[in-house]
Amino acid sequence: MIRWRLWLWLPLLAIALLFGLFALQLSRPKDEFVRSALIGQPLPTFSLKPALPGQPPLANTDFADGKPRLLNVFASWCVPCAAEAPQLAALQAGGAEIVAVAIRDTPDDVAAFLDAYGNPFSRIGADPYSQLQIALGSSGVPETFVIDGTGVIRHQHIGDIRAEDVPRLLDELREAGE
């Protein structure tokens, strides 16, 4: 009595594949991060005014002196940026040179932020309209990039740095120096 027709089973097959995809996506944590597509490529050309008056400015040419560095994208109005301050201090203590870029910030706010949470940065550039941030492919604050001695972006850390991230970042920095 039953006439088996193959095409009648197609909807069931399609829906099975679809639900399999749903189950797969449900079972793993969602990746919220938008990663920069510039990893492995040289820093974009930029030259920023200093975030604090009287301090040195920041340009991409500052990175091409053979020494690997961390580039920290932060803002005084960003809460996780304050939370990662101890880890930045630990990185500095571990021998890392950290340069920073302050996004959409005023000199007074940056100064107050550094007074409150310490200043591990060798230079801080000001990026009032997020221009460098967009040029870097960064989509939020804080983010930390590992830049090698020739000015090539080697690694991107998204979000605040936790204590367990410190050794990994130091490793990345060491690899970038080799």
Binding site: A75, S76, W77, V79, R104, D105, P128, Y129, S130
Partner: peptide
């Protein structure tokens, strides 16, 4: 709410 600067031009 936390961002101090006015919008870009």
């Amino acid at each position: 709410a936390q961002d101090g600067l006015p919008p870009a031009p």
